[in-house]
Amino acid sequence: MRPGLPTAAETARAVRAGIQVVRTEVLPRAERALGVARARWLFRSFRLGHGVAAYGTVSARNDGHAELGDKLTFLGGMLPTSVACYEGARLLVGAETQFNYGVSLEAWESVQIGARCMFASFVRVSDRDGQRISPIIIEDDVWVAHGAILLPGVRIGARSVVSAGSIVSQDVPPDSLAMGNPARSMSLDLVAREASSA
């Protein structure tokens, strides 16, 4: 058999495979690299972990002590996320925490966020509400759903969930679900099956 020119079908297949590789391999990596570079630039005044990626606009400001952990993700969307740490304040964010678009994170005294947390769009976290300033602590693996507002002085326990649109004014114990305005917490055992079957 003589090696000849590939047939049209073969060429088409090769091109399709090429496009597929570009779509699934090259583009996401390029996007990721761009996100990391953008985060480096946006958070230049922060103490930054490695692998932090910003896929959209983030307005970041640091006049105090702000530390962001490794592998954070900031997603982009219709509203920019804003991260602000004012003079003399402390803002700590743990590793692998994810922020959707439109999150507003403000530290006037102290805001601590654990590892692997998830913040959905339009979540507002601020330790100052006009009358008082009181530190906020969010432990590991917390999920704060769309549009929730965390008021000053709350502590959210590990693995808890803050439900969409709730306004949290009291501490939320670990493994519970906070819901409503003002938010009340209930045990996750009451509303969700055990981790194994979830």
């Binding site: 339009f122 999920w143 693995r159 969409a164 055990e194 981790a195 194994s196 979830a198």
Partner: peptide, 17 residues
């Protein structure tokens, strides 16, 4: 304005997020 309509929670309440 600013309504959100979601037909999926996207993450389970507990377990593998």
């Amino acid at each position: 304005m600013w309504c959100k309509v979601l037909d999926n929670m996207y993450h389970p309440l507990r377990g593998n997020r």
